[in-house]
């Protein structure tokens, strides 16, 4: 049985058993078959911006027992949104935010964010996350939270994020309005 057949077989078993079998123990079996993401060639971002976006998104959502943001193409997704979907004003503000983020990182750590080791990246990102949450009410939209949310949008719309970190059912089949949380087990990737 090749990998895709096995995945289908597991899915069908899950359906037969009422759709509640998706325990984390099965994740190891399923991990084998996510499609590889094509190589990303930045068009809008400079090399250093691309390195920062890759490092920061992967710090926000790193590989654990599931893949991280960089592994599933989130940096390329972020660029496509900023390049094609954002307005001119939003784009300028985002690129400016990237520059300032790295500038601050250099000032405080002596190194660009992408060049820090993983521990230092997490520490710096945690501080920026906290400051952004604290300052948002007074200062308005914060670059870090814009970036964090865009990373999460990008990640949880992938098959990895939607089905292996969160819960996704392509064809739920029925609607039940009030069931024990354990019957679902994890947050739905799509609420509506």
């Amino acid at each position: 049985m090749d990998k895709m057949d096995r995945k289908e077989a597991i899915k069908r078993t899950a359906m037969l058993m009422g759709g509640v079998v998706f325990a984390p123990t099965m994740l190891g079996v399923l991990k084998g078959c996510s499609p590889s993401t094509g190589r990303w060639r930045p068009e809008l971002f400079t090399a250093s911006q691309a390195a920062l976006v890759t490092a920061l998104s992967d710090t926000i959502i790193p590989a654990t027992d599931t893949k991280g943001a960089a592994d599933v193409g989130v940096p390329g997704f972020i660029e496509s949104m900023v390049k094609d979907v954002y307005s001119e004003e939003q784009r300028t503000s985002f690129l400016d935010g990237l520059e300032r983020f790295d500038e601050k990182c250099r000032e405080q750590t002596g190194s660009a964010f992408a060049s820090l080791d993983a521990g230092a990246q997490t520490e710096f990102a945690n501080t920026e996350n906290r400051l952004a949450i604290e300052n948002e009410a007074e200062e308005g939209p914060q670059f870090f939270l814009v970036f964090k949310e865009l990373t999460m949008v990008g990640y949880f719309r992938t098959e990895e994020g939607a089905t292996r970190v969160l819960r996704y059912e392509d064809i739920p089949g029925i609607y039940q309005g009030c069931i024990p949380f354990e019957d679902v087990g994890r947050t739905w990737s799509h609420n509506h």
């Binding site: 710090t59 926000i60 959502i61 790193p62 654990t64 599931t66 997490t122 990102a125 945690n126 996350n129 906290r130 949450i133 948002e136 939270l145 964090k148 949310e149 999460m152 949880f156 970190v165 969160l166 947050t187 739905w188 990737s189 799509h190 609420n191």
Partner: peptide, 19 residues
């Protein structure tokens, strides 16, 4: 949904658990 975690003090593995 996962958006409730955007404004939480969580980055990295704790964020993936929180969502």
């Amino acid at each position: 949904d996962w958006r409730h975690a955007v404004r939480e003090l969580a980055i990295g593995e704790p964020l993936k658990e929180l969502v």
